[in-house]
Design a protein around this nucleic acid. Structure first.
Lengths: 280, 280
DNA sequence: AGTTTGTCACCTAGGTGGCAAAGT
DNA sequence: ACTTTGCCACCTAGGTGACAAACT
């Protein structure tokens, strides 16, 4: 039960950490386990079920009081949803690429004085490989998934820290980078291009007890935001995604044509979205 | 004995921390306690005693084994000495200014598995206020020191961390900023302009014992590098200092005139330094 | 007269998508 | 045919000293 699943090494802004004996994780990524009723390719927006306002913890056994009351709120939720309706794509590069939108959360209900580690991992949303049909502007299934790259986990660089510290302000995973390099030694998250993924967020109570391994399962709580799922790509496929990135990411401002779209407008009428395509 | 001296609050890259009960410091800055036989204004370079290669811990009582063996090595020592021979000046601004050279150290002899906090503070080198005589290119005593600003301490943002983590690579205090704003609420170090200061570096073992306050004095070790002392200024006084900053600080590259001084040359013949001036 | 402040041009450092070229 | 790579111009973000103006 003691994190056999996230093998390889651990990714953090502070450098690579040895697998921490005190941290424990839910089983991760190696096997295919769809977490949510993900409707993909993204259907007509109006028809899709709306994601919940606050993440649902993936329910499990009894939890330590230090984590049982923890609640997590996704920041930039409207932006995430805008992307998700179009079918979010995230660039992966050899050197590692940040996510946009950034994964940011507001945390509530921690024990102020207890130590926590915060981390993320990515699970495949299905067992398929995709390709994008430009003529129909739709994603198509292109076969079974490629072999899964080494599973990794990204610790927030400030881990471990007191609950008070984590709750003081929004927690941002802006040091997290995605790569398609199977041999990456920068501790980045390795993903298969043209595959679908679901980011997961884990709150781990750092148990001071000597036999803390025993309580591994009780000491963490995981959160999944369906609206953050995405397709990993080496180049954007859906032109609408490109345009929304340019419109909303400050670093892409150089590609904006005018001041008219100088800032992301969350309630822009999103007409003419690609229709659901046939899965072969 | 439990850090009464560094009052106010604590400065760290992670934000402002409540005074940590578990950390303990040597008495700091409020009272005037010259630490070293500092020869200032800087006399003829050849005549000055050379600073030691490795910092001398400020000797004290018995130490916890976790800190007793810790050794610290100053990085960019040659550059620090070059500045020190001219009489180092550090800019202070309302918004806060980084130090250049940066205070960076290599650490040896920590317990790999123990937790440590790393921090810095600044003690007045004397009880005087200075002014710079441009005609003679010399510093002169201009009276007694102004009232000491609130003493502060800068925790390295990665604190606390395991010994292994600290020793893995050079530790850099590049988030530390100096200000002259007595009302600063960014947690920066507050200094009096036209006064002389000695940076100090402290290694604090985070004692897991419940009654760790009892062992406060045993759990830290302090290091002082005489070559890092400086005068706080709001604008550079000695034109040679300005030129050396421009020549050696990458961020000031815009002020270099040619490629000839494109990089700092540590063994440049330092002729024509300002002579020792009369203290009134 | 001496010291401080604010603004500026000019850097470093690094995050964007575009695009042509190279892989496969 | 489809996907990946490398390089680029163009941004954000922020660290420099110069300098004129303001302060005291």
């Amino acid at each position: 039960e003691l994190l056999p699943s996230p093998p390889g090494f651990l990714s953090t802004g502070r450098g690579v950490l040895a697998p921490p004996e005190t941290y424990t994780l839910p089983a991760a990524s190696s096997s295919w386990e769809p977490r949510l009723g993900s409707s993909f390719p993204p259907g007509p927006a109006a028809g899709s079920p709306r994601p919940q306002a606050v993440a649902e913890p993936t329910g499990q056994g009894p939890k330590n009081p230090c984590v049982s009351g923890v609640t997590v709120q996704l920041e930039m939720k409207a932006l995430w949803e805008e992307f998700n309706q179009l079918g979010t794509e995230m660039i992966v590069t050899k050197a590692g690429r940040r996510m946009f939108p950034n994964f940011q959360v507001k945390i509530l209900g921690m024990d102020t004085l207890a130590d926590y580690a915060l981390l993320m991992d990515f699970v495949p949303l299905d067992n398929k490989r995709y390709r994008y049909a430009f003529h129909s502007s739709a994603w198509l299934v292109a076969g079974k998934a490629d072999p899964a790259p080494p599973g990794r986990v990204h610790f927030h660089p400030d881990s471990p820290a007191k609950g008070a510290q984590w709750m003081r302000q929004i927690v941002s995973f802006d040091k997290l980078k995605l790569t398609n390099n199977l041999l990456d030694d920068n501790g980045h998250i390795i993903l298969n291009s043209m595959h679908r993924y679901q980011p997961r967020f884990h709150v781990v109570f750092v148990d001071p007890r000597k036999d803390s391994e025993r309580y591994a399962q009780e000491n963490f709580k995981s959160f999944v935001f369906a609206e953050t799922q995405f397709t990993a790509v080496t180049a954007y496929q859906n032109h609408r995604i490109t345009q929304l990135k340019i419109a909303s990411n400050p670093f892409a401002k150089g590609f904006r044509e005018s001041d008219l779209d100088a800032w992301y407008c969350p309630l822009l009428p999103a007409q003419g979205r690609p229709q659901a395509s046939a899965r072969t």
